[in-house]
Nucleic acid binder design. Structure first.
Lengths: 237, 237
DNA sequence: CGTAACCTTGAAGATTCTCAATAAGAGTGG
DNA sequence: CCACTCTTATTGAGAATCTTCAAGGTTACG
């Protein structure tokens, strides 16, 4: 039932793992990964506590990762779009520390980690790419730390939308018009805000002509104004 | 001027990079690293924008990392204690995305990254250890995301102190009595709070008999009460 | 010993949250 | 295909945590 599409035929190959290996070595990578595993909306890719055996590349759809606080409340820790790799937080301890769940439907490629490690041992560019990927996640986490620690609700939502926009563009899609794969609840949760706050800001951004919003469809009409959130914290005196 | 102390003689070897290599391979690791570089209080180890050439292991003292927002305000993103490795967020892009500065005095070992990568290519356990280290940082970042997104000021400070306590214990030091290497300002900044808030909570924790605080000296008197912050968010109905 | 950085405490103010109610949408089953 | 329900989204008003502003006190260090 799993579609055995070659990485070569995948539109994401240029931004996904294959970008790190030469075409002659691609076969080795393809050999270890299981491609095209389909997930229904809400289905788990893995749960916190599961044995860590593989990292995953999103092929279609979107996936969110989340952790549960001691009191059972959920904290969304990330959203993953096509071409992006998730699950690397499990390497240490060999079990997952968060859960991953499909938003809408999704398909993912599964890459057994121990075999990926072996392969990295033989392919320096692959080793470097994996370190690089993790480093990029660290950078994103630091940016998130700043966002949550210092920025207003407006700034957080603006930054979130701009980041999504950039990730769409990376895939060759429109940077100014896209569909949010996640609910307002997930956005709010991710940004450390209440749903109501997020909803109000969407409304206000629309009134200000910064966005056009219709449900989960978003059009960025004034990118500069959106970027201004967060930049002009204090008008230089 | 640089002390050439062998990793073998370093009390941190069991929790630092050497733990990932066999004693026969330790020489190779020691060969590439520069040991014991001393830093004065406030001195930078690297700055955002610097070329990324090496990761650093703290040997003595403490180091903080921080990023600057567009408006120039600082966001402290981490504190690093002896035996801990910092700087890996620079791998991607080959330049540092944050700055690192010594709190009090500190000494650090510098490990040129390209040579560490080469070495990892030949020593599987080292490769795994580095991935593991980064994975651990990712986990910590996710925990931070939860802390900043969902937890009260009390919970944040409590979690911070407990984490510090655990890191002290890991080095064989007292888990209940230690000195904070950073200022209230840095703590507040790191936790996304105002200094005044942190100061007030220290005072209150002391009044409640949870802590004894005298300047930067802290004694944890009631660990359970401290852990309770964050656990008992909602008393189960 | 003086200056500067750091820390504490109080009171007012603000952003964001919670509570509450309504509306819109998606999925389900008769 | 429509009624029903559950989830998702929007909007308003009051409440709360935390921040900002202000001032005094303490510690560190040249």
């Amino acid at each position: 039932m799993v579609q055995q599409v070659s990485c070569n035929d995948c539109s994401l190959s240029s931004i996904c793992l294959p970008m790190a290996v030469s075409s002659s070595q691609l076969g080795e990578l393809e050999e270890i990964m299981e491609r095209g595993r389909p997930l229904k909306k809400g289905e788990h890719l893995y749960r916190a506590g599961d044995n860590f055996v593989a990292v995953h590349a999103v092929r279609t759809g979107a996936v969110k990762t989340y952790a549960l606080a001691e009191d059972g409340t959920e904290q969304v820790t990330g959203f993953y779009l096509p071409g992006e790799i998730l699950g690397m937080e499990g390497i240490n301890e060999e079990c997952h520390h968060s859960s991953a769940k499909a938003l809408d439907g999704a398909t993912v490629c599964e890459i057994p980690f121990s075999r990926l490690e072996d392969l990295s041992q033989r392919i320096p560019t692959l080793q470097h790419h994996i370190l690089s990927l993790m480093s990029k996640e660290l950078c994103a986490d630091r940016a998130m730390h700043l966002l949550l620690g210092k920025k207003s609700a407006d700034d957080r939502l603006a930054a979130f939308l701009l980041a999504l926009s950039a990730r769409h563009q990376r895939r060759g899609l429109s940077a100014s018009r896209f569909r949010l794969p996640m609910s307002r609840y997930d956005i709010a949760n991710y940004l450390g805000l209440a749903v109501e706050t997020v909803s109000r800001i969407f409304t206000r951004f629309q009134q200000q002509g910064i966005l056009e919003v219709e449900g989960r469809e978003v059009v960025i009409r004034d990118r500069d104004a959106l970027s201004a959130n967060g930049r002009i914290q204090v008008q230089s005196a």
